[in-house]
Design a binder for these strands. Structure first.
Lengths: 142, 142
DNA sequence: AAAGATTGACTAATCAATCTTG
DNA sequence: CAAGATTGATTAGTCAATCTTT
């Protein structure tokens, strides 16, 4: 189970290293940045469900996450004309700025951590494994 | 940043899949099992600090984790004859049993998730990256 | 003083129950 | 009645302050 152990250990260590670098450079924490990246990918039309799936947390947790991002002025819930049960979540101008500058530091921190290592093969293998897993059982989903 | 994204996504998905399989088989959750595996590796002489480092959580969190494991009868804090500031944490008989049966299910769940994929190269690369990171900055440590 | 651990205040996750809309 | 989201109770983490022992 060496694979599982090192996967877990490295993921925790990398998250921690990147998060600390973000803090040193006066950026958002990695948790918030990770969320803003997900919101950004949905081009202003993110629903709470989408974020839940992207980030791998429950719908309830995603709802509260959006509460906090909204409180901090980084995203806004806009009415969904097609379905009044949900809102469409978009980045605010402040959210765009935080995502932009945070992403720059984020990329640099990862490049630094990789130190020239070619991770393309690892990336490919993990993609394959992730697909396998997604097919068999839908992780966090209800 | 495809590498970071898939690393994170897969780690979350794999954790979730294994955790659910443990639940279905009436075993401890993966969080607790992960902790018991760490305690077990220290052969009855684990200190709170050791677990903190192994698991990648703060010392305070590790102290509370041991509280819960102790409350559940899975580990015991024994006096440390060499240093009265710390205890030596050991598995109880119940803890040994839970670790044993949980590990069996754990291994099977991982094998199932890997589905014959050869992860040795990925493991080697992640080991190398983890070493790099450990040298530059000590993650969670105070 | 420093090291090891614990505790309290706070933050963020889970699950279950609930409310609204489709 | 399903689906989408929110909320409340609980659980587990962070950080900072503290206590004991070295």
């Amino acid at each position: 189970m060496e694979f599982f152990d090192v996967l877990l250990r490295y993921e925790v260590a990398l998250w921690s290293a990147v998060d600390q670098e973000l803090g040193r450079r006066g950026q958002l924490g990695l948790g918030q940045l990770h969320a803003l990246r997900a919101v950004g990918r949905h081009e202003g039309r993110a629903r709470v469900q989408d974020l839940s799936g992207d980030i791998g947390i429950t719908v309830g947790a995603a709802s509260k996450l959006v509460d906090r991002l909204e409180r901090d002025g980084l995203v806004a819930r806009n009415p969904n004309p097609a379905d009044r049960r949900s809102s469409l979540i978009a980045l605010t101008p402040a959210g765009e700025r935080a995502l932009g500058s945070g992403s720059t530091v984020f990329r640099a921190a990862i490049d630094e951590a990789l130190g020239g290592e070619d991770v393309a093969p690892v990336t490919a293998t993990l993609e394959r494994l992730a697909s396998r897993l997604a097919e068999s059982g839908p992780g966090v989903a209800a």
